[in-house]
Design a protein around this nucleic acid. Sequence first.
DNA 1: TGGTCCTGCGCAAACGATTGCGCGAAGGGA
DNA 2: TCCCTTCGCGCAATCGTTTGCGCAGGACCA
Lengths: 329, 329
Amino acid sequence: MRGTTLKEIAQRVGTAPSTVSRALNGLPGVGAATRARILRLVRRCGYVPNPMARSLVGKPSTILDVIVPRSAAYALTHPAYGEVLRGAGIEAERRGYHLLLSFAPAAYGERVEQGIAGGVLLVFNRADDPGIAALLGRGVPVVALPGVAHRTDLPAVRSDDVEAGRIAGRHLVELGHRRIGMIVGPRNSRYGADRLAGLQRALREAGLALDRRLTRTSDFTCEEGYRAARSLMAEPEPPTAIVCVDDPTAVGACWGCLAAGVRIPGDVSLVGFGGTKEATLTTPPLTTVSIDYPELGRRAVDLLVRLVERQPASAPPPLAVRLDVRGST
Amino acid sequence: MRGTTLKEIAQRVGTAPSTVSRALNGLPGVGAATRARILRLVRRCGYVPNPMARSLVGKPSTILDVIVPRSAAYALTHPAYGEVLRGAGIEAERRGYHLLLSFAPAAYGERVEQGIAGGVLLVFNRADDPGIAALLGRGVPVVALPGVAHRTDLPAVRSDDVEAGRIAGRHLVELGHRRIGMIVGPRNSRYGADRLAGLQRALREAGLALDRRLTRTSDFTCEEGYRAARSLMAEPEPPTAIVCVDDPTAVGACWGCLAAGVRIPGDVSLVGFGGTKEATLTTPPLTTVSIDYPELGRRAVDLLVRLVERQPASAPPPLAVRLDVRGST
DNA sequence: TGGTCCTGCGCAAACGATTGCGCGAAGGGA
DNA sequence: TCCCTTCGCGCAATCGTTTGCGCAGGACCA
């Protein structure tokens, strides 16, 4: 129930604990020969420093507080969470870090201040929460995968969503569509806003304009996708193509169209974003702009670890996306 | 960046740190008046003991290591995970515990031995992994929500899956079905086996027997549900009802039937298990035996905390389930 | 040869909490 | 009044690691 300690290593190598500590942390003040002897023994014993003790003396904890929204609507049920967390978990493990799972809006940063966590990773939270602003003010290392609302002052890892919207739009325009609708996310959704902006840009580039009557809001669930699609198809002049803010919305829209007797892609084309498994399962399978969510999680952890360790760090460029043409267009 | 410490509380109340510690932990050796003064100040300051320091002196950590399978097939994308974790998170928070997220099969119990975690919560893992047996041998507190494979020696929290299968079967029998098929989980899946056993029991009670040719395996995903359903409906004498091991499988089966031109519930009835949102979204909405997953998570944390704190504890009785009749039967 | 500097390493305090031990005061019985 | 018990509380060690400081010994220069 207890691992090797620094003191034991020190005894067995015939030196003081402080020397072992310095050798492990790469600090000066240790002879090359001694350092080698120590490191060899450490490797042989599989010694791992006790994270509790080390964070007690002021070192930042190697635990990262991953905060997801508690909201029943999408808490962890959206496929993107699973993929982001898997990528984040792999990167964390690689670096000897751990992921703590918290549900917002439980006191942001509380765990960092208690010394339990070294930093905070916000996954698809509302960035306009005042608690998050407070975090920054208190100097808590924080990285966001922005979900709802923009914040330029927050270190963030993001996919290139404007480009994603543009790719989707261009694809549809090239197929000859002129009346293109979109189901965006909730108000203030960054994804919805960015992808909509990209779509508008693609339309502008083709000399077209978006008809505002052909947009609907939703909340990243199948239910809302279903409702929004039926609402769109009930318009006097329904769209011939619908861009859906994410895959679940698109899956819902697909069902909605089927239920309304609208044929895909005969009567209407559908495009989603994400490229998660769900999108391959509808009949027909959905064309999507795919996003490498595990990579997004990996990058977020990478950036956060740098911030925690006070290394120079800057947000990576937006993650490139790719169009996957399948049967729905 | 630092919270109140025990010493500060002690100073402000005019006593020794040890007295404050004893007062907080409800130990004897503190006068009633002093205890009251201390507790009042502690509440006013919002003091929380530093978990690092306390686990350093041998107290078990208040962090619980939640281990989910890494397997890309269902890691976190199955809706049950989100619900279980939400319930677990709420209970953990209520008790002042935290959830660490790990991916199996990364060294089970390693985090407990490093002192990071106080116990292990296995969520839908393969219980036949040798690493899990080793856990028990080393005295690591562990609780499982059994996914794959039985283990009676593992403290576990479970839903009453045999009864769930029986309820589903009885419902179909009462509707007049005689040829009932089932899509079970992977080999060794506890859920599949138990629910199948329940179904067989219901059939026996009605003087019927299960036709082995009407069972298919799957892996808790829509894809496999889709495939299995099409395979079942391609039988020379297809079933008039299909029991699906979980909701995603049932959703997939629903699509599979639609794709095969089979009408629901006209030609075939479908029943799922879980009662997650997905099941309400198909056309028609699916009849399911609903399971309170958040409650399952809550109970698991409750049991695990008892084990960690060396309190008397025993596994709770199986969680009751309930039939939700909707449009698919 | 004597003085200075640098290098390598040990000593000890510190982080925040728990806990065994001991001490003084109060209370009760003889 | 004296002794013994009991109660309430403080002292100090402890967990494992980091880190400032100081000491010894060798190298180097004059």
